[in-house]
Simulated scan of single mutants.
Amino acid sequence: MNESIWNGGIWNGEDVDLDAYLARTGLSGGLRPDLAALRAVHRAHVSAFAFENLDVMLGRPVLLDVASLQAKMVDGRRGGYCFEQNLLFGAVLERLGFRVRGLAARVRMGGTKVLPMTHMALRVEADGDQWLCDVGFGGEGLLEPLPFRDGARARQGEWTFSLADEPEGPRVLRSLHKEGWFDLYALGAEERLPIDYTVANHYISTHPRSPFVSQVVVQKTEPDVRTTLTGSVLSVVRPDGSADEWEVGEGELREVLVERFGIELADDDAVTLARVYSSRT
Score class of each variant (00 low, 15 high):
Arg275Glu: 15
Ala36Met: 07
Ile204Val: 15
Asn12His: 15
Lys72Ser: 04
Met117Gly: 09
Val271Ile: 13
Glu3Arg: 07
Gly9Lys: 03
Val237Pro: 00
Arg226Thr: 00
Val199Gly: 07
Leu31Pro: 02
Ala200Pro: 14
Pro167Gln: 12
Asp150Ser: 05
Asn86Phe: 12
Val248Met: 08
Arg260Gly: 00
Asp165Thr: 06
Leu143Gly: 13
Gly180Val: 03
Asp268Met: 04
Thr198Trp: 09
Glu84Gly: 04
Trp131His: 12
Trp159Asn: 03
Gly231Arg: 07
His42Gly: 01
Asn7Cys: 10
Gly231His: 10
Ile195Gln: 15
Val172Cys: 08
Thr227Gln: 05
Met73Trp: 11
Pro211Phe: 04
Arg95Cys: 03
Gln85Tyr: 01
Ser278Trp: 09
Thr198Gln: 15
Glu52Cys: 01
Arg238Val: 00
Ala37Ser: 15
Phe137Val: 02
Val233Met: 13
His45Gln: 12
Tyr21Thr: 09
Glu222Lys: 08
Glu252Asp: 12
Pro194His: 09
Gly251Lys: 07
Tyr197Met: 10
Tyr197Val: 05
Leu64Gln: 09
Arg99Asp: 14
Gly251Ala: 08
Glu125His: 11
His45Thr: 11
Glu52Trp: 05
Val107Trp: 04
Val258Leu: 15
Ala200His: 03
Tyr81Arg: 07
Asp75Trp: 10
Asn12Gln: 15
Ala67Gln: 15
Trp159Pro: 05
Asp150Ala: 09
Ala200Lys: 01
Gly241Glu: 06
Val225Asp: 00
Gly13Cys: 03
Ser68Ile: 06
Arg171Ile: 02
Asn7Arg: 14
Pro116Leu: 04
Asp75Gly: 01
Ala71Ser: 14
Gly30Tyr: 09
Arg24His: 03
Arg106Cys: 12
Phe89His: 06
Arg238Phe: 10
Met117Tyr: 13
Ala36Phe: 06
Asp19Ser: 11
Gln215Met: 13
Leu115Gly: 00
Val62Ser: 10
Pro211Gln: 05
Gly30Lys: 04
Leu257Phe: 11
Glu250Gln: 14
Ala37Tyr: 08
Gln219Cys: 02
Ala44Cys: 05
Asp268Tyr: 11
Glu94His: 07
Leu35Met: 09
Ala154Ile: 00
His202Val: 14
Leu88Ser: 02
Leu187Cys: 12
Glu245Val: 08
Leu265Cys: 02
Glu264Arg: 12
Arg280Met: 12
Gly29Asn: 08
Glu190Asn: 12
Pro223Val: 08
Gly141Asn: 00
Glu250Ala: 14
Ala152Asn: 06
Leu63Arg: 15
Gly8Ile: 14
Arg260Ala: 07
Met73Gln: 06
Gln219Pro: 00
Gly180Leu: 05
Val92Asn: 01
Leu173Cys: 12
Leu64Cys: 08
Asn7Phe: 01
Leu115Ala: 11
Leu176Cys: 12
Thr112Met: 01
Glu250His: 01
Arg209Ala: 15
Val271Asp: 15
Leu18Ala: 06
Val124Ile: 13
